[in-house]
Simulated scan of single mutants.
Amino acid sequence: MDFIANIEEIRKRARRHIEEGAFTKDYALDRDPVVRILNDALATEYMCVLRYRFHYFMATGIHSASVAKEFFQHAQEEQDHADQLAERIKQLGGKPELHPSVIAERSHSEYREGTSLADMIREDLIAERIAIETYREMVRYFGDKDTTSRVMMEGILAKEEEHADELADLLFAVQPDTNQGSRHLYFSDETPGRTEREQVGS
């Protein structure tokens, strides 16, 4: 039994629909929702690029040199993710949505500047955690029906998890109020049932 059941029909379709590029008849998902989902991820990545770049330029304090270097590297990696997403959207016959108002509206994470070095780290960590959860959902959505998009999102997800781990480590080394010393990761509004005094004393 031949692996390809009807190669002649496939050849004919390839010629008839040449303008479709990489998109073929056997694509198992509805293309329009896929393009919307990928554009949401694209907006999220560009929001992260902007936030990381801002933090890179505005980082100050005793720890700022090493932390700013981390911000810069993360910004470059988020830009690479955005490029991958835009290319995939184009492959599927869609249009990468790069208008600033669209990016602001569709990004999963928010543009939060932060008021101190530690606050910047915290806002970036929150954004990474949001991306991790939503990108995992995307991976499950693509599953075996769009393995190219799934593998791409798995690679992006792995890098976001790495970013989150690095930022969490930085929070152990930076005192949120004074930018000095060290403390545990959690903030008073993130540990239900514990007062700020109890946390500082722990």
Rank of each mutant, 00 (worst) to 15 (best):
R31D: 00
E190A: 12
V49T: 03
I4S: 03
E97S: 12
G181W: 11
S116T: 12
T148S: 08
E97F: 03
F54H: 14
E70M: 08
L171K: 13
P192W: 06
H81L: 08
I126F: 09
V67C: 02
P176E: 04
R194H: 13
E162W: 04
I156Y: 07
E128I: 03
I7H: 03
V35H: 02
G143E: 05
L92A: 03
L167T: 02
A118L: 01
L42Y: 06
D119L: 02
V200H: 12
T148W: 00
P192Y: 08
R150T: 02
S149E: 05
D2N: 09
C48K: 09
V34D: 07
F187S: 12
S101Q: 14
A118T: 05
E133R: 15
H81D: 09
M138P: 00
R150Y: 01
K90N: 07
D165V: 02
I7K: 12
D119K: 02
H74L: 10
R150G: 02
S109N: 15
L157Q: 04
Y46K: 03
T148G: 09
C48S: 14
H63D: 06
L98E: 06
Y186G: 11
A41L: 11
G155P: 02
S202L: 08
A75F: 11
A59C: 05
R36F: 09
D2G: 00
D83L: 08
M47I: 06
V174N: 07
S188A: 14
M153I: 14
S182M: 08
N179K: 02
M1R: 06
A173L: 15
S149P: 01
D2S: 09
T195E: 09
E133T: 13
I121P: 01
T195N: 09
Y46P: 01
I18T: 12
A173M: 13
R16S: 13
Y27H: 03
P33A: 04
F23H: 11
D80L: 10
A68M: 04
F187T: 06
E113V: 14
V200E: 15
P96K: 04
N39M: 04
I37F: 10
I37P: 00
L29H: 05
E45I: 07
R197L: 14
V49A: 03
H55T: 00
K145D: 10
G61C: 08
R36W: 06
G201Q: 12
R11L: 13
E166P: 00
I7R: 06
E133S: 12
P33C: 05
A68I: 04
S109I: 13
Y56G: 00
